[in-house]
Simulated assay, not measured.
Amino acid sequence: MTQEAKPNADKPRMSPFAYLSVLLVGAYLGALFVKSEVASWERVHAMFLLQEAYMYLIIGVAIAVAMASMLLIKRLGVRSVDGKPIKYEPKPYHAGVVVGGMLFGAGWAITGACPGPIYAQIGAGEWMALFTLAGALLGMLAYAALKPRLPH
């Protein structure tokens, strides 16, 4: 097979160490989500009913950490695991952002999980989260199928 026939032939491959690093960070985040109760349906439910500020404080801390991290990444010129520079490129605002945000929020309120905590819930033995994962995957496939007709 020639070089032209392989579309990803020049793309560097991730090392086993990089895969292991990603797996360990994911496992750490999953444990953190479970222990901090971010993956708890009851906590998410109380947040959406404005009964307690716990989740809002967690989200606020996460935003502050993300801001500080992005500042450090820019200043230090950090690269991704595959050697590419990490860049922040703002997404354009459009009507689809509002509709998508409302759908995302509704799914989060009903299931008690946004994408990251779904895996933490499954890992913690909350097998009903498999239905949440199936719904998230169906939503992703529906978006992919409808993308050409949606406002962007």
Score class of each variant (00 low, 15 high):
F17R: 10
P151G: 10
E126K: 15
T2E: 07
R13M: 11
W41G: 04
D82S: 08
L141D: 06
G26N: 13
F48R: 03
H45C: 05
L146W: 13
E42H: 11
V34F: 08
Y143N: 03
I73A: 11
P115S: 09
L29Y: 06
L76C: 11
G123D: 02
K11D: 13
E42C: 00
G116D: 10
R149D: 04
G101K: 02
I58D: 08
T111W: 15
A106V: 11
A66W: 07
A46L: 11
L130E: 07
A144N: 09
S21Q: 05
R43F: 00
I58N: 05
T111E: 14
Y56I: 10
W108M: 03
K147L: 09
E52T: 12
H94T: 14
S80Y: 11
V65P: 01
G116H: 04
P92E: 05
F17L: 14
I73S: 05
G83L: 08
A39S: 15
L29W: 13
E4K: 12
V22N: 00
F104P: 00
Q51R: 15
S69C: 14
K87Y: 03
G107C: 00
W108G: 00
V97R: 06
P16H: 07
L72G: 02
G60N: 03
S69A: 15
Y119C: 02
G77M: 03
G107E: 00
G135W: 05
L138R: 05
P92L: 02
P117Y: 01
M102S: 08
K84R: 12
I118L: 02
G60L: 05
T132I: 03
E42V: 11
M14Q: 10
V38H: 02
G96T: 07
M47V: 04
A53V: 14
V81D: 06
P85S: 08
K6M: 13
E4M: 10
M55K: 00
A120T: 04
L49S: 12
V44H: 00
M14F: 12
G125F: 07
M55D: 01
L76F: 12
G105H: 01
K87L: 12
V34M: 02
F33Q: 01
S80A: 13
L49F: 07
F17E: 10
M102N: 02
V81S: 13
A120K: 10
V97K: 09
A53N: 13
L50K: 06
L71F: 14
